[in-house]
Computed example of a mutant assay.
Amino acid sequence: MIKIPKDNPLQILSIGTKILLKDVMDQYLRSLGEVKTYYASKMSIAVESYLEKRPNIIFCEHGFSEGSALDFIQYIGGLDPSGDQYFVLAVEESSDPLVALAVEKGIDEILVKPFSIDTIHQIVERYLEKREMATEDWAKELRNAKVSFLEKRFLEAEDLYANAARHYPANISVLLECADFFLRRGYANQAQTLVAAVLKEAPMNVRALSIMGSALKKQGHYEEAASMFLKAHDLSPLNSLRNVELAETYVLMAEAQIQLALKVETENSTLILTKAKYQLLRRDYAALVNYLDAKRAFLNDAGKKEADNLTLLAKKLGGIR
C-alpha cells in the first residue's frame, strides 16, 4: 500500500459534491499518508484553488455547480501532457462517448461511482508513474516553452515550441501541443502543417481533427473546416465547445455566400438584411450598425423598418450609444 512521505506531500483538489463526497474522500485520502486535500463545489472556487495550490491530482465531477469538467479544463488553459498533474473525471456511469471525450481532452482516467479505497490507491500509483514520465526530455522542452509563454516571453516561446516540434517529429503529444500553441498565436498555416503530420499517422485523432478544423476556419476555408469538425464530432460527440465552433463555421460559410451574392446584387434588401442578421449572430454589433447605416438608402420601406429594429437591438446588446 502506498504511503506518501511527509517531506513530499501530495496536493489534491476535489471538485464537486454529488460523487466526490467529502467524508468519503477524506477517509480514502488520509490512508495514503501525507496528503493535503482542497475541496471546491463551485467553478470560481475550483479555478482559484487550482491557480493557488497547483494540485498534483484533480478529481472533478463531470457536472457541478456553475459548470462542468469541460468548462474547468477550458478555464485553466487545457491539460498539459508534459506536466506531472493527473486529472480524474468522476461520473455516475461511463460510456463510449464519455471515454472519447476524456481521450480528446487529455483526461488521465475516468472514476465511476461506486469506487473503493483500492481504486483511489491505484489512481495515485498511476499518477506517480506519470510523474516519472514528466522527466523525459520532450516533456521538459514543452514545459520550458509553456513557461516562456506564461511569462509573456512570446518570441522565445515561439522558438521553443518550433524547436520541440523539430526535435520530436514522431511524438504526437508534442506535435499537438505545438499546433495548438501556434493556432492560438494566430499562425494557422504552421498549426495546419504540424497537425497534418499527426493525421497522416493517426487519421482518427479527434484533437488533431479539431485543431485542423480551427486552422482551416481561420484561413476562411469554411467547408473544409466544417468537414473536419463533423469527423471529430462523429468520434467524440460530447464536446460542446466544438459544436459551438461548428455552428460558428456554418454562420461564416453562409455569410461568405451572402457576400458573394451581394457583389452581383448590391442593392438587394433581403441580402443586405440577411448579412446584418449574421453580423448580429456573430455579435459584431458595431459593424452591423455601420453597415446598415451605409446601406439604408438601398432598402425599401419595410426593409428600413427592419433595419431600424436590428440597429436598436445591436446598440442595446453592444452598449452602443
Rank of each mutant, 00 (worst) to 15 (best):
K3A: 10
I4L: 05
P5L: 00
I12V: 10
T17N: 12
T17C: 07
Q27M: 11
Q27K: 13
K36C: 02
K36F: 05
K42V: 14
I45R: 09
A46W: 03
V47P: 00
V47H: 05
S49D: 09
K53E: 05
N56V: 02
N56I: 03
N56C: 03
F64T: 10
S68R: 07
L70V: 14
Q74G: 09
I76T: 10
I76L: 07
I76P: 04
G78K: 07
P81I: 05
S82T: 10
F87T: 05
L89Q: 04
S94D: 04
D96Y: 07
V99C: 04
L101Q: 05
V103G: 02
K105S: 13
I107K: 03
D108P: 00
K113S: 09
P114Y: 02
F115K: 05
D118Y: 12
D118N: 09
E125A: 13
E125S: 14
Y127P: 06
Y127I: 07
L128Y: 07
A134P: 05
E136S: 15
D137L: 11
K140H: 08
A145F: 05
K152W: 06
R153E: 15
R153F: 12
F154R: 13
F154H: 12
A157F: 04
A165C: 11
P169R: 09
E177N: 09
L183M: 03
A188R: 01
A191Q: 01
T193N: 13
T193L: 11
L194Q: 05
V195Q: 00
A197H: 14
L199R: 00
E201R: 10
P203F: 01
S210H: 15
G213N: 00
G213R: 01
A215G: 01
H221D: 03
H221P: 00
E223S: 09
M228A: 04
N239I: 03
N239W: 05
N243R: 13
L246S: 01
L252T: 02
I258Y: 01
L260I: 13
L262S: 02
S269Y: 08
Q279Y: 14
R282T: 09
A287L: 11
L288P: 03
V289M: 00
N290W: 04
N290G: 10
D293T: 12
L299G: 06
D301Y: 11
D301T: 15
E306F: 15
D308E: 10
A314M: 01
L317V: 06
I320S: 01
